[in-house]
Structures are given as structure tokens and as C-alpha cells.
Amino acid sequence: MIKKLSFLIVVLILCVAGAYFYVQSQVNSYLTQPLKIEEPQIVTIQSGTSLNRAMSMLVDKKWIEPTSFSSFIHRLHPELAGLKAGTYQITSDMDLNQALMLFISGKEHQFAITFVEGSRFVEWRDILASNPNLKHTLDGLSEKEISQKLGIEREKLEGLFLAETYHFTNGVSDLDILKRAHVKLNNILNEAWDKRQSGLPLKSSYEALILASIIEKETAVEDERTQISSVFVNRLNKRMRLQTDPTVIYGMGENYDGNIRKKDLKAPTPYNTYVILGLPPTPIAMAGPASINAALNPDQSSYLYFVASGNGGHVFSKTLVEHNRAVRAYLKQIRNK
């Protein structure tokens, strides 16, 4: 009798062990199944989402197969239970286990938003407003109100942010992006101001930023920036009007239709450097580090004029006679095209 009982116990143990190892192998096989996606996909795990709920979500999207062993996964793999709320990116080279480990890691996907050098604040607002991954807090606010929220003591925000690519997690606010861009701009501007050339006709780092924004709009040719800067610095030193078209365009605002006419050059706006002496009251665009450094470290030259060469660059002149000759050459080249 005892032998029979012992035999039955052994059989029972073997059956339980066999069942355990079978379930374990099925679970492990299930966890190593590759995700059925061809392109990276964004997954948002809400606060309080359970392991089973997360897997059900993946099944609903047909990214994994369903299984009758799902209820055993958290028992056999308790390390997979602590999912962290966030937005993640899964890729086609992942299996289910790797996806779940990503949800546990809390390493959220970094979205990106890019602002180009020479862009204007009105364009930044449109870019921020159209990004679906940002929390939008600026809708309906005036530029002055945004300035107050940022703690910036200027009503005009043009030029006060560094144009580059910013990475962020889902739900970060548009205001936070602007704060980061403003801090980065100030860091670069202050460092460049501390290392500036002596004897510049600039009273403050803000005036340097204004000049940098004009340089930014005048040329995209990297090695021309310091030459362009030298022309403007020379003109400022001689109390000559800057006479730069981008400032006229900025002053025209929505009235600019792609053309500058003679009447526009005579229009008395605060930004028309054909009319006013010195710099305009604010920057006219977002300047990059290269233009900021060029504004504060211009070439040592005698140039007072420049005009487009027709080949992507500019022709620089020391006298009005030379400049007029370069203008005629440019116009001739344009007509021949």
C-alpha cells in the first residue's frame, strides 16, 4: 500500500513538473516571438497599465499573436510586471520580451522639433502649434504674454531663441521648448560677447544679436559671414546707413509680397535701414552661432558695400564706384539668364 502511494506521489510530481516545464516553454516561446511591424511604432503606456493590458493592446494592433498562456507570464516572469507610464518607440527588430523590457525601463522615445537659422518667431509659433506631441499652452497668447511667461524682459521675442533641433518626450510643453532655446541662445551669446573684438560699435550683447540676425538673413555662405559683418561694422563706425534689404522686408511685415519697390525703401518704418541710422530696434530673425560670432569678430577690411554675385555669393567693394560696377555686372548676368 505504501509503495503504491509513493508511486502515485512520484507520478503526480512528475506530471506537475512536466506541466510546469511545458507551460514555461510555451511562455518563453511566446515572449520571444518577433513583433509584426515593418516600421517603428509609437506606443503609449498609461499610468496603472498592467502587463496583461499592455499585451492585449499589442494583440489588438495585431503586432503579436494572442495566447492562452498570458495569465502565467507575470507569475513566471515577475520582472515584467513593473511597466512605467510613458511613450515608447518599438522597432521591427524587437521581440515581445524586448518591447516589454523597454516599457519597464522608462526610456521614453525622444521626439524632435527643428527650427532653422534665419527663421522668425511667427514661424516658430506655427511649428510648435502643429506638433502633435507637444502640450500646447501658447494658443491665443500675445507675444508680450509669452514673454512674461518666459520671464523675458522684452516684449519682442524675435531673435531670442537658438535655432537648432530640440529633442523631447511626449507631452512636454511648447513653453518648455522656448525656455530651452532661450537659455541656449543666451549661453552662446554671452560667451561670444565676452570674447568679442575690441572697438566694436556695439553697446550691448543685444545689439550684437541684432547685427547677427541681419548677417544671418544676408548670407548662407559660411565663409562670407565675417566679411558681411565687416561691411556693417565699417558703415556703423562711419555713421553710414546700413541699407540692408532684409530689414526693409521685416519692417514691411505682411505687406511684403516678394518684391521691394522704391517706395518701400523710403517708407519710414523702425526697421528700414535705408531711412534710419544705426541698427533696427530688435533682431529680424533667429541667428545661429556662426552669425553671432561673425558679428562680434568681423574681418578687418575696408569694405563698405556688397552685392550678390549671381553665383550664390557676394562681391565686396570699398568704394561706391566699385560697388556700382558690381551691381551693373550682376544685373547684366541676371538679364542674360
Rank of each mutant, 00 (worst) to 15 (best):
T67S: 11
S173N: 13
W193E: 06
V248L: 09
R180D: 07
L134E: 02
N52T: 01
N52Q: 10
L96C: 07
E191C: 01
T169K: 00
Y20L: 03
H167L: 15
K36A: 12
T114D: 08
T226N: 08
A112F: 14
G48F: 06
K144Y: 03
W124A: 03
K195H: 11
S130M: 09
P34K: 04
C15N: 06
K217T: 01
I214F: 05
R225W: 00
A85K: 13
R180H: 08
N297R: 14
A326R: 07
G86W: 00
K184T: 04
P280C: 01
I146N: 13
G48P: 01
V116R: 04
H314L: 15
N272P: 02
S309D: 08
N97V: 12
G159E: 10
I113R: 14
I146R: 11
S92N: 05
R180W: 09
G171L: 05
I177S: 02
H74N: 15
P40M: 14
R335M: 02
L138I: 08
A192Q: 10
F103P: 12
L76S: 03
A99Q: 02
M286K: 01
S309H: 11
K217S: 02
A220I: 01
Q243N: 09
V327S: 10
A212S: 08
V10F: 14
K332V: 04
A287Q: 08
L279T: 07
E207L: 05
E143P: 02
K262S: 11
L76G: 00
L14D: 05
I260Q: 01
G82R: 13
I9T: 11
P34V: 03
K217A: 05
L320G: 02
D257L: 13
S204D: 07
V231P: 00
L331E: 14
V10P: 10
S6A: 15
K238G: 14
V248T: 09
I292M: 09
N170F: 11
Y206Q: 02
G258K: 10
K156W: 06
E158Q: 12
H314E: 14
Q110R: 06
Q197P: 01
T169G: 14
S147I: 14
A212G: 00
P298W: 13
Q89R: 10
V11P: 01
E155Y: 07
P280E: 12
K179D: 05
L279P: 00
I214H: 06
S230T: 02
V27C: 10
G171I: 08
A19C: 13
N186G: 09
D257I: 11
V275I: 09
K3I: 07
Y88S: 05
